[in-house]
C-alpha cells in the first residue's frame, strides 16, 4: 500500500493499479439439497425427520440440524428412530425465538449447515428442523432450497382454513396424524378441501399456475413416510440435473 493512501479508509480499500483483489465470498455451495421442516409444536416434525432419515438413509448421505431447546433429547430420538449417526446431527440454540433463527437471523443455522457439509462431504441432503413455531414461521430462502410445513389433524379440522405463511406458501404441506381423525373428531375431506384452497392461491388471493402440493400422512400407519420420501427423491433428482444449476 502506498503510504499516502493510508490516510482515509476509502483510500485504504482502493486496490493498487493493475491489482484485482479478491472480494471475500461466502463459502461456495457444495451441491447438498437443503430442506427446512417447520410447523407448530407437536405436529410431528422430529418424527417426520426421523422417518425420512430411516427411509432415505440407505440411498442418500443425510445430516440434520435441530433448533429445539431439548437438543440432547432430539439427538437421541434421531439416533434411535432415524438410524442416524450422532456426528450427523447438530443442535442450534434459538434464544427462544424459533422464527428468528430460521428467518430473521439465519447465521447460526447457516454455520451449522456449512460445517456439516464440510465435515461429511459429499452430503446429499440436510434437513433443518425448526423449533415449534407459529403458523407464520417460514424459512429464509437464504437457508434452504425447499421447505415442508407440518401440521396435524389433532390440532383441529379448522387449522388449514386459518392459513398463515406456512400453510399457504411452503413447498410441501404435510397434514400428519390422519389416523386420529375419528377421535378428534375431524373431517379429513374438509381439511383436504380447505388446504387445497389455501395452496391454490398466493398472497393477495392471486391464483397460482399450479397449486402447491399437500400430503396427508399417518406415521403410525406408515412409519417410513413413503409419500414425503418420494417427494424428497424427486427434488434430489431435480437438484442433481444440470438444468437446475
Amino acid at each position: 500500500m502506498p503510504a499516502k493512501a493510508a490516510k482515509t479508509p476509502e483510500a485504504r480499500e482502493t486496490p493498487e493499479a493493475g491489482e484485482t483483489p479478491e472480494i471475500p465470498e461466502a463459502p461456495a455451495r457444495r451441491g447438498t439439497l437443503r430442506i427446512g421442516v417447520g410447523g407448530p409444536v407437536g405436529a410431528g416434525k422430529t418424527s417426520l425427520v426421523a422417518a425420512l432419515c430411516r427411509t432415505l438413509g440407505e440411498e442418500l448421505s443425510i445430516a440434520v440440524v435441530t433448533n429445539d431447546a431439548h437438543a440432547a433429547q432430539d439427538a437421541a430420538f434421531l439416533v434411535e428412530r432415524g438410524s442416524l449417526d450422532a456426528e450427523r446431527i447438530t443442535a442450534v440454540q434459538t434464544g427462544g425465538s424459533p422464527h428468528a433463527a430460521i428467518r430473521d437471523d439465519i447465521a447460526a443455522n447457516l454455520e451449522a449447515v456449512e460445517s456439516l457439509e464440510a465435515a461429511l462431504d459429499p452430503l446429499d441432503l440436510v434437513l433443518i428442523e425448526s423449533g415449534g413455531g407459529s403458523l407464520s414461521a417460514t424459512f429464509s430462502r437464504g437457508l434452504i432450497d425447499r421447505q415442508i410445513f407440518v401440521i396435524d389433524v389433532a390440532a383441529g379440522e379448522r387449522l388449514p382454513r386459518k392459513g398463515g405463511l406456512g400453510i399457504t406458501s411452503a413447498d410441501l404441506l404435510v397434514v400428519n396424524k390422519t389416523d386420529l381423525a375419528p377421535h378428534v373428531p375431524a373431517d379429513l375431506e374438509v381439511m383436504r378441501r380447505d388446504a387445497a384452497a389455501q395452496r391454490a392461491a398466493g398472497p393477495g388471493g392471486i391464483v397460482r399456475e399450479t397449486p402447491l402440493p399437500t400430503l396427508f400422512t399417518s406415521l403410525s400407519e406408515h412409519p417410513g413416510a413413503p409419500a414425503v420420501a418420494d417427494w424428497v427423491r424427486g427434488l434430489i433428482v431435480e437438484h442433481r440435473s444440470p438444468a437446475a444449476a
Binding site: 480499500e13 472480494i23 471475500p24 465470498e25 461466502a26 447465521a107 447460526a108 454455520e111
Partner: peptide, 16 residues
C-alpha cells in the same frame, strides 16, 4: 457468523 454476514453486507478486501 459475523464475518459471514459481513461478507454479504460489506464485501471489501479488508475482510480478507
Amino acid at each position: 457468523q459475523l464475518l459471514r454476514t459481513a461478507r454479504t453486507t460489506w464485501p471489501v478486501p479488508r475482510l480478507n
